[in-house]
Design a protein around this nucleic acid. Sequence first.
RNA 1: GCGGGAGUCGCCCAGCCUGGUCAAAGGCGUAGGGCUUAGGACCCUAUCUCUUAGGAGUUCGUGGGUUCAAAUCCCACCUCCCGCACCA
Length: 959
Amino acid sequence: MRINWKDIEIKWRQKWNENKDFETNPNDKPKKFITVAYPYPNSPQHIGHGRTYTLADVHARFYRMQGFNVLFPMGFHYTGTPILGMAKRVEANDKELINNLKNLYGVPEESIKTFVEPVKIASYFHQEIKAGMIEMGYSIDWRREFTTIDPVYSKFIEWQINTLREKNLIIQGSHPVGWCPKDQNPVSQHDTLGDVEPDFTEYILIKFKYEDYIIPTATLRPETIFGVVNLWVNPEIIYKKITVDDEKWIVSAECAYKLEFLDKKITYDGEIKGSELIGKSAIVPHRNESIVMLPASFVESGTGTGMVMSVPAHAPFDHQALEDLKKAKIAPELASLVNKIMPISIIQTEGYGENPAKEAVERFGVKDQSDPKLEEATKEVYGKEFYGGKLKSNTGQFAGIKVAYAKDTIKDWLIKNKHAGILLELTNTPVKCRCGAECVVKVLNNQWFLNYGEKDWKKLATKCFDSMNILPQEIRTEFNYVIGWLRERACARQHGLGTKLPWDKDWIVESLSDSVIYMAYYTISKFVNNGTLKAEKLSKEFFDYIFLDTGDANKISVITGIQENTINEIKKEFQYFYPVDSRHSGRDLVPNHLTFFVLNHVAIFPESNWPKEIVVNGSVLMNGSKMSKSMGNIIPLRKAIQDYGADPIRLAIIISAELLQDADFNMESVSGIQNKIESLFDECSRLKAERLETLEAEDRWIKSKTQNMISQVTLAVEKMRLREALHDILFAFESDLSWYMKRANAKNRSNVSGILHEVNSIRIAMLSPFAPHIAEEMWEKLGHIGMVSTSRWPEFSQSNVDATAIQSEEYLKSTIDDIAKILKVTKITPQKISIYTADSFKSKIYHSILEKIMTGQTNMGIIMKELISSPDTQEIKKNPDFVQKTIKDILSDPTEIRRTKLESMDFDEKSFLVNELAEIGKKEFGVEIQVFSESDSDIYDPKDKARHARPFKPAILIE
RNA sequence: GCGGGAGUCGCCCAGCCUGGUCAAAGGCGUAGGGCUUAGGACCCUAUCUCUUAGGAGUUCGUGGGUUCAAAUCCCACCUCCCGCACCA
């Protein structure tokens, strides 16, 4: 039957709503507090967002059915810059953006007009996203909803950030950022044309002296200062004379401009042509040695300072420029200076001789200094020397040190002796701001940082991680790694929506810092929404009392004007629900949000309120590739729900991959799921609850298998291996049931509805967290009273497991299998089939061998000896082949099966086959099947097959 | 570079944690059959090689090792993907 997903979904959502099933208040049951990273409402949700929320919802619904009082809330993260950027683009009438809003996101024209106001964007998509979450059937307590610009939230963030500052975890310092000089604002990927991340690098400026000027040269390899033999100047460039702080420098105009942003005072004093510097000498700072300035065309004004120090032994460009100069027509005085220059080799690297630059240039066949091959040669020499090179004895105190270590050491030494400075420069120029201006690197010197580099803080966080449950386990090492490298992190910015820093109102709390302990806020947002709490009344004392349990309710009541018992009720709410039992998020938040979440919790809350668990999921691919606007393969979640129904989407997302894997989503799999659910639905509509008085073998078997399934599925869900759990519910059950039906049909049974009803009721209950709407409908069809989502999760009961039933059914299957195999190989059409089971002596031997193997003995010789030494079993020496094969049989069984076989020694193969094989065998093969024991006196055995019989492996004769 | 993950039978993908039920689930594709006026959908059967008796051989990136037994554990190597910050 075709299912009308939409009607069913609306019907059950309404009932959940009426019953207030997901509105959670403290009670005397044990609680679970499940949270997911709240959405940033700058676009509608797509399937990818749906994954994280669906996983969390399944988790919440599962715990609810297990009898926990589950709180699953949701908020909306308005804070941040992308929305601000969007608003600006709307204001600037950005065609691309408006087109996307209109066509891709389906935003009505009137709404777009209001988008010049950032809050309007956020609230539009907030409602859009919320509607999608409701349509997906998420079991959210909406009474606790909030946004991060609500006044009370701001008070909460002020409290958070003040608390951190009191603990000396917030510091002030300088920090480089990508910067738009026109907007006077830091830029990130969201703010640039083409969405490029401004990428910058740190050059060391070596200060060479020339008259009373300093000529700084920029280098990434400060260690090569020991090999400098001349400087390179481009004669075509007109350099600027500038004063930098108290020094007079000569640099290119571009460099001077860059320096303006690097927290330096610059004044412009005049100009000098490059050509005027040629032939003049400069002093190498650390050894006061005079070197000559020479002309080179490869020197660019836009890179570094427009001046380059020359290390011809290790820098292919320098080597080549010298060679070019030797060949060029230049003034004789200059030529004689050039000819005097000898490269100084300062790094020993395996694979290179005295002059690595020269060797590389020759090997690459470089023509002149404009040859692009020089880049490759440079890369090679630099790479090999950096990782494999050691400094030679002519580097003084640094001799013998590996280049990779020496670099930083020498940098520090040069800066300490005032021989060097720092220049920060973009490496992926030009980076253009969305406003069109070209970006630069700027050093912000009054930036506020959260001091995540603090050792004791890290220690505390590590302690928390160690005691936490991390799912999946593989991601744990990644967290440890992140904690390791984390340093200070800017926690305030100057633009965007958000809460102002309480002590410095020019700054706004940065959006990754105002979203780390907000789970606690869910416990009070209920009181904000019902009007109990008002922002203006809330003080530090209030939050301290609620969240840290310090202070005096009476005094706080006086300060805030809130009734004392209300204050205590709120505190109780927090104390009941905290700590967070499970935090869900995508894996992209591992190195930032999730780690900060732990860091901030351990900083603010006592250990008893530290989070218990983190669950991390991978992203969603669409037909194997990443979803992106440009690919046009973004499926908006609400559209997908419209087209396919919420439950099929939920199932398809979960079945497509295990937690951390990227889930490859495709529409075919959704319709596959739909078909599957439809047939399950039909099945449920037919079944009636009936009592069955006497159970047959297959009844005991399917009941046992169902118990196995319950424990398997429960275990999988507990570990958030939802794909596996769902697979078992949907498919593994199916194959068990189809065997059961085969057996029942062979016997022409008409009394199986009761058993099937029982099994499928369990199945539907377990399906309910995954596909909540349709499970309710099926539950109703099965005739159950009440909601499946509030019913009890099926519990494993050992008393319903009949090991013998499982084993004997396996025995039946393998016997049928063997017959089928023989038929396949021999291609004969059977007239008659005879089965011979092993006699009791063989059974005795079998068990004897099984016991020996269970103790670890697998050696044929020893087993044989032991068998012969016992009078009971010594006769077996006439049949060593049997022992050999039996050992092999047993070894190929898994351990659990061996154990059951050991337990069920009294299993009578012959009578079981007589009772069970005949009907199904007739159905399968169309002929009569006779069963004998090899010791039967009236045995029919014309081909002498019976003697081959082994326990659990009867001999077969097909005629 | 640092850190993490992955490589499975035509393709996608499970199994690996907890070794034996593994020639290895499921899906797609392919072939045959059923249903149907036809197409689609659906259902059944087959899908590494050899085999007229339930068997054997060769397979899970490559090469070693541990074990009675390895896709699974250990070591080395090759290849691919992702993250590395002030941004949600």
